[in-house]
Design a protein around this nucleic acid. Structure first.
Length: 661
RNA sequence: GCCGCCUUAGCUCAGGGGUAGAGCAACGCACUCGUAAUGCGUAGGUCCCGGGUUCAAUUCCCGGAGGCGGCUCCA
């Protein structure tokens, strides 16, 4: 038999001509696909001389994606068996799972998901093979005549469609699902690759349903989407479900209720939060620390109103660009005659969606000298944005929020240095709040949604890029993601369970200085336009509290914790002893309570634990006799017999150092 | 804004065409206790709001508000 040489994992290997990839890879069941000359292929494909082959393991990212994509196919097959009228959209793998879109079908319900899961299990048990078949465009059109979405995909083939799994590469392929008797049960247009047969799906679950727009466009018809997940083993599926449950436990909306931090009273309106006393303490501690850091970094504090006449936002351009995102105006001072005609024209006042126009007015309230630059104006500024009802989410997406907003006015020469030191400032402050895993995203110009000269954009983008690179952090490009007036980078932070949150944004702006005709007098006596840098560090205070709540799972470090110390007497005869310690702590500024309720001490511990209070100080006869207390921490560890002075020092140190306990 | 689901005591949730229940929390009494729930008792409801059907609606229907999961959007 003829033999050919191929590369396996880069090593020349001799295999018999016509071998499948599966055979070439030693019939190793760990592999479910292979990368051939850089392209993912089915294992059933025959090797060609000179092929560069790498086996794709089930546990690799590519392997998981293939498994999930194949599971999506099985789901689509199940859906069409139950709802024959359903037409197929697309079904790609996504992070931790997959989805598939269907047209011409009523919304799925939890009951229909159960039916579909059951049908999927039948298909999996039948071990149907995925067989790849190359078709011409004509053939595909004939075979898919009942699948209008697929026909649309066939017709756009050739356009760069790398992100669509159904078509791509140089040829059109259909995958047939074939049963043990060789009969084709179902087929789907797909570029593949797939697992060899459905029996390789060991663990899957349908997760949720949603409506979506065909090809993600609001103008297109709506499709019904089912999300699912699939894993190599049942254990991994269970681990994944467990991770989801853990994430749910740290949901700040849930913790906000349990810890009595904040709420969203229906009476006020959607997306508008109130902070309760305990949430208020966290907020004040955060803000106070931020203020003191800003003060030492050379910022000046300003205050501006929440509403303004429309002309300010006409000057800034917001009314032209973002009127949809603003609350509608209030018309004031209008007077009408008896016939309803206008006697005196009123003025439209708007709630402010941004602080920058106000800061610009402060800048130009008098002449400015180059000696004043960089001028750094800081404000905890409340802004209101009319977010669509469907996007509002706890504290992370609201209609009313407080930005820790600053605008830095500087010369062109100062800009690169200012950006660099700004980024360091931002990162150092975020670290103090307990976030320490970052990367940066650089959002550059969207030509269709922006104004300004190319050279300005290029200069600003280069300065941002240089500052970002100097930080040594990973920089991810976000082409076209910039706001209309200038490029920005944003600091993305990873939380305790690895989720990323967009935190600070740093944005360069040539436009507003021009629109507001901002000037300074340079050292040669000429009048120059300053550059403006916008930056919010928390993004919004509300959102930052939401993120920190989830990051810490409600167990805030002592400096932020609403109650820092709770004193628990073993019996109420020790109340007075703990009162003494508590009043000492209190006089040192510690937020401390003595639990004098009628409960047993175990119950008090449980209560303090549920409130996630950092320090429990327990005292009974043994402690009192030696002028000591016993510590219990949130993780259950205890340190007994700590002398009172030492205990106070431990608590004060943790607060002062902003350390976690 | 779009699609689906949901809304019953402070919280978590059961129930169901004949005006309602549990656990926890709250309050009271007893218990005085060494590291995550002592016992007993009391009180607590416009069953989200408005309209309709019905002898009767918290329950069924329509509309609205709010929430949840997605989609879309995110200066």
């Amino acid at each position: 038999m003829a033999e050919v040489t191929i590369l396996i994992d880069g090593k020349p290997t001799i295999v018999s001509a016509g071998s499948s990839l599966f055979e070439a890879l030693g019939s190793d069941k760990r592999f479910l696909a292979a990368k051939v000359n850089g392209q993912l292929r089915d294992l059933a494909l025959a090797v060609q001389a000179g092929d560069d082959v790498v086996g794709i393991d089930l546990v690799s990212p590519d392997g998981l994606a293939i498994l999930r994509h194949s599971t999506a196919h099985v789901m689509a097959q199940a859906v069409q068996e139950i709802y024959p009228e359903a037409i197929l959209g697309i079904g790609p793998p996504i992070t931790d799972g997959f989805y598939y879109d269907f047209g011409n079908v009523a919304p799925f319900t939890p009951e229909s998901l159960e039916l579909i899961e059951k049908k999927m299990r039948e298909i999996i048990n039948a071990q149907q093979k995925f067989i790849r078949r190359v078709v011409t465009e004509k053939q595909a059109q004939v075979e898919l005549k009942k699948e209008p979405f697929k026909l649309e995909l066939v017709s756009i083939k050739g356009a760069p469609t790398d992100d669509i799994m159904e078509v791509g590469g140089s040829e059109l392929t259909i995958y047939d699902n074939v049963d043990r008797n060789g009969k084709t049960i179902w087929c789907d247009l797909c570029r593949g690759p797939h697992i060899a047969h459905t029996g390789m799906i060991k663990a899957f679950k349908l997760m949720k349903t949603s409506a979506a727009y065909w090809r993600g466009n609001e103008k297109n018809p709506s499709v019904q989407r089912i999300y699912g997940t699939a894993w190599p083993t049942k254990e991994e599926l269970n681990d994944y479900l467990h991770r989801l449950a853990e994430a749910e436990k740290r949901d700040h909306r849930k913790l906000g209720v349990e810890l009595d931090l904040f709420s969203f009273p229906e009476e006020i309106g959607s997306g508008l939060a109130v902070f309760h006393p305990k949430g208020g303490i966290i907020r004040r501690a955060m803000e106070d620390y931020s203020r003191s850091r800003h003060e030492s970094a050379g910022y000046e504090f300003v205050y501006t109103p929440h509403i303004t006449k429309s002309n300010l936002f006409e000057t800034s351009g917001h009314l032209q660009w973002y009127a949809d995102g603003m609350y509608p105006p209030m018309r004031v001072d209008e007077e009408r005659n008896e016939d309803g005609s206008i006697k005196r024209a009123g003025a439209d006042y708007y709630l402010k969606p941004m602080n920058c126009p106000f800061h610009n007015l402060i800048y130009r309230s008098r002449g400015r000298s180059y000696r004043e630059l960089p001028l750094r104006l800081f404000e905890f500024g409340s802004v209101y944005r009319y977010e669509k009802s469907g996007v509002i989410h706890g504290l992370t997406r609201v209609r009313g929020m407080t930005q820790d907003d600053a605008h830095i006015y500087c010369t062109r020469d100062q800009m690169p240095g200012e950006l660099k030191s700004l980024l360091n400032f931002v990162l150092s402050l975020l670290r103090d709040y307990g976030l320490d895993d970052f990367y940066l995203e650089l959002s550059t110009r969207n030509p269709e949604k922006s104004i300004g000269s190319d050279s300005d954009w290029q200069e600003a983008t280069a300065a941002l890029q240089a500052a970002a690179e100097a930080s040594g952090l990973k920089l991810v490009p976000d082409p076209g993601g910039a706001a209309f007036y200038g490029p920005k980078f944003s600091v993305q932070a990873k939380d305790a369970i690895g989720r990323t949150w967009q935190m600070s944004t740093i944005q360069v702006d040539f436009q507003l200085p021009q629109r507001f005709e901002l000037e300074y007098q340079a050292d040669d006596g000429s009048r120059q336009q300053p550059i403006m840098i916008h930056r919010a560090l928390f993004g919004s205070v509300e959102r930052f509290i939401g993120v920190l709540t989830e990051h810490y799972a409600g167990a805030f470090p002592p400096w932020l914790a609403p109650t820092q110390v709770v004193c628990i007497p073993v019996a109420d005869t020790f109340n007075d002893y703990l009162d003494l310690i508590s009043s000492k702590l209190c006089s040192l500024g510690v937020r401390v309570e003595v639990d004098k309720s009628d409960e047993r001490m175990q119950k008090k511990i449980r209560k303090a634990q549920q409130q996630k209070i950092p320090f429990m100080l327990i005292a009974g006869e043994v402690d009192q006799a030696s002028n000591a207390v016993s510590f219990r921490y949130r993780d259950g560890t205890q340190v007994n017999g700590v002398a009172i002075d030492e205990a106070i020092r431990i608590i004060l140190d943790a607060i002062k150092n902003r350390s976690q306990v």
